[in-house]
């Protein structure tokens, strides 16, 4: 079961926060196919947000084919977003760790690395180098010393 954390002042609408947090859970494997999402009642009792917002977020997830309502039972996960490549022990992650270590050795601090990542992601995704649902682990995406492991 997932527990949503709603940040009122984040500027992101509560509905989007639920969608994003659900997807994040699907990516990380916290939620897996067949798992039940909390009922709207459970979500709102804990977060004190509008129930219609929860329903709206669940409908959005349903439209994307990630979850499905089963009348009288609840809403269940249909499909996972977890990618074995991105798993904690996957080679992509290992490559990224290696690259970050290298950047630190080169004298970059946390903010420098983060800014570099963001700018590269912006550039690569805006220019349509990969498809919108494509893998973030595209070869060379993170620069010359990047995690250049062309995983499956």
């Amino acid at each position: 079961m997932i527990e949503y954390r709603i940040e009122r002042r984040s500027g992101v609408s509560t509905y989007q926060q639920i969608v994003q947090q659900t997807k994040q859970a699907l990516r990380l494997g916290v939620l897996q196919p067949g798992d039940k999402l909390p009922t709207a009642r459970e979500v709102v009792e804990q977060t004190a947000i509008n129930p219609n917002t929860v329903l709206k977020a669940y409908r959005e997830l349903e439209r994307e084919g990630l979850v499905e309502p089963r009348p009288g039972l609840g809403t269940f996960v249909r499909r996972s977003l977890a990618r074995p490549e991105a798993a904690a022990d996957g080679p992509l992650r290992a490559g990224l760790v290696e690259w970050v270590d290298e950047a630190r050795t080169a004298g970059l601090d946390r903010e420098d690395i983060s800014a570099l990542m963001t700018s590269v992601l912006e550039q690569r995704f805006r220019t349509g180098v990969t498809g919108s649902t494509g893998s973030a682990g595209d070869t060379g995406a993170a620069g010359s010393t990047g995690p250049a492991d062309p995983a499956a």
Binding site: T39, A40, R41, E42, V43, V44, E45, Q46, T47, A48, I49, N50, P51, V54
Partner: peptide, 14 residues
């Protein structure tokens, strides 16, 4: 405040 608002929202949801 948070807890009672949650109760109210649950009432609305249910």
């Amino acid at each position: 405040r948070h807890e009672l608002m949650g109760v109210l929202m649950a009432e609305a949801a249910e």
